[in-house]
Amino acid sequence: MKQRKGSVLRLTTPVKVLVQRFAFLALIAATFALMMLGKADVVVLERFRSIAVDAVTPILDGLSRPAATISDLANRVREIAAVDEENKRLRADNERLLHWQYAARELATENEQLKALLNLTAPPAQSFVTARVVGDAGGAFVRSLLVNAGERDGVKKGQAAVTGNGLVGRVVTVGERSARVLLITDLNSRIPVELESSREQAILAGDNTDLPQLVHLADRAPVSVGERVVTSGQASAFPPGLPVGVVTAVSDSGIRVQPYIEWSRLAFIRVIDFGTNGILAPSFERPQAKR
């Protein structure tokens, strides 16, 4: 018995090695084929990808919760340590903001009256979906996030992802219950923006660094450090006027923008449905929340 097994083994070993070699080469070929297909933007591949992401999202969701809890706890401890100072700062802020609120109320009323005078048509109402960030393993070369809301929650490709602070990025792929958001710092991100004060149009181009670049700005357009950059809402489903960041550097090598988003604190984002990609978009949809 034992000897027979041995002789069979001796016979099959070279065959086995050959088969393994062949399998290895076939796998290498498969990776190249996938890269080529991916480069050609094959729809089936995109579909496969979103289905696969859908499948792992619940697992990532489960893993992201304890991580979020721990970081929340750490933040809490830090906040308690600084509570006295924070209090002082908030009192001062409050006083200042009350003044602003007064000004804003006045302006809002005036705005209403002027709009009524001009018979201005109201912009389409926005609805939004809140989603949890479940994955951010972009690695060294990609800046993207996975969130746990997808088609069934009303997320669509091309929509803007924001937090209370400002623009995060744009939805690039959508699965049934997950979606990928390309951050504004990614190499492939191009966002139409404008300078808030001068209304000069430009494109915010990511390059994988923390400070995306402002390109295609008109030649003579005045731009200075500290200027606010907002979305222009041109040629996309983005609502105009979303805060993006501030100009931090103006030099011959380019204009850099510091985004408002604190990338390490992203736990939830909102995906805005601006309703520009459908003529019959429901204009009074209630905001849905998803935990």
């Binding site: 498969a30 084929a33 890269m35 990532l60 972009g138 993207s144």
Partner: peptide, 13 residues
């Protein structure tokens, strides 16, 4: 590749 968003096949290769 699928989870991180890089082109499919890169990490596999």
């Amino acid at each position: 590749d699928i989870v991180s968003g890089v082109p499919l096949g890169v990490n596999a290769l």
